[in-house]
Each structure stands twice: as structure tokens, then as C-alpha cells.
């Protein structure tokens, strides 16, 4: 009898432990009462706006209305890396929350979306990515109309003109220095 108990107890404990672990690991999934679908563009271009949408619904298929969704984007600026909030949205009547985002750099964009199920204690998240093509540099505003003649060349021409006039004054000073040995003609002598 004792031997039998010992034979059964080991596997039983192992099964219980495995079950407990399974339950523990499954809790977040079970806790998420929501069905989450993201809708990201398959391709995007620098400087062209895209819509980043998330659709939240309950397991029975009903839309989750009025939930706040926060979008984070992994960013890198001046050697500092981290996440930045790129927008917030509130899900509408069909459970969709969306933001409009203007990609400013090329490459793979990793977006993390945070949301909270009604009544849930913890914030849940979903990840998504989309690829942005285009120039490597940040988007710059347009330089304005290109008016012929209005350019650094004009600035240099004006500045050069001023310095030429100053140079002409220097020549006058040379003239003064060179005329130092010249005596005035006596009155009435007239020009020579």
C-alpha cells in the first residue's frame, strides 16, 4: 500500500506542479478578455501620413467602445534611445481607435499599443511594425519659393561692394600720405 502511494504520489505531484505552472503562465492570456487586431500599413513613405488603427473587441464579438489606446514608437535622437508617445485615441462605436502619424525617418517602425480592458487592473499591450521607405533624413519643411537672384550670391555681392568702397577710402588715405611733400601753389599761380 505504502509502495503504491509512493508510486502514485510522485507523478501526481509532478502533474499538479505542471498544471500550476500552466495556469500561472496562462493567466495573462486568460486575463485578456479582449480580441485585439491591429491595422498597420504594409508600406509607408517618409513624409506621407499613415493611419495606425487598433480594433478592440470582447471575446463574444462585441466591440469595446470608449477605451483609451496609447501609441508608443521606439525612437532614437542624439544618442538617446527610448519610447515616445506618438498619439492617443479612444475606440469608437465599432471598437476602432486610430491615429494619424507622419513618418519622419525611413526604416522599420516598432509601435507598441497600450490599452486597458474595462475593469481590468493591468494595462495590456500589443506590438506592431511597419516599414517606411524614403530618404534617410528627417522631413524638412519646404524652402519656400525660389526667387531668382535672392540667394547667398546677392549677400556676397552687397558685402563685396561695401568692402570695395572701404578699400577706395584706403586709396584716398594713400593719396593723403603721398601728397605730404607737395606744397600748395602760391595764390594766383593757377593750375600747372
Amino acid at each position: 500500500m505504502y509502495q503504491t502511494i509512493r508510486r502514485v504520489a510522485g507523478p501526481a505531484l509532478a502533474i499538479l506542479a505542471a498544471g500550476a505552472m500552466t495556469v500561472m503562465l496562462a493567466v495573462p492570456a486568460i486575463a485578456s478578455h479582449l480580441v485585439v487586431r491591429t491595422s498597420f500599413p504594409s508600406a509607408a513613405t517618409v513624409g506621407e501620413g499613415v493611419s495606425l488603427a487598433v480594433n478592440l473587441g470582447t471575446p463574444d464579438g462585441a466591440p469595446l467602445v470608449g477605451a483609451t489606446v496609447t501609441y508608443y514608437l521606439h525612437m532614437s535622437f542624439a544618442g538617446v534611445e527610448g519610447e515616445g508617445v506618438i498619439g492617443r485615441a479612444v475606440t469608437d462605436d465599432v471598437g476602432i481607435g486610430a491615429i494619424h502619424y507622419l513618418p519622419r525617418a525611413a526604416g522599420l517602425h516598432e509601435v507598441r499599443i497600450e490599452y486597458r480592458a474595462p475593469g481590468a487592473a493591468t494595462v495590456e499591450e500589443v506590438l506592431g511594425t511597419f516599414d517606411v521607405a524614403g530618404g534617410e533624413q528627417l522631413v524638412r519643411s519646404a524652402g519656400g519659393p525660389d526667387i531668382p537672384g535672392i540667394n547667398p550670391g546677392l549677400l556676397m555681392a552687397v558685402l563685396g561692394g561695401v568692402w570695395l568702397i572701404l578699400l577706395s577710402v584706403a586709396f584716398r588715405l594713400v593719396g593723403i600720405a603721398r601728397a605730404s611733400g607737395r606744397a600748395d601753389p602760391p595764390a594766383g599761380a593757377g593750375p600747372r
Partner: peptide, 17 residues
Amino acid sequence: AIGWIGNAAQRRSLAAA
């Protein structure tokens, strides 16, 4: 003073400058 003696030529140059 760059050799100023006040002659007519110098005065003209000075006035122009």
C-alpha cells in the same frame, strides 16, 4: 598723421574720404 600737412591735395582726398 600719415604725413598730413594740410595742403590742397590732402584736403581734397580727406574730404572725398
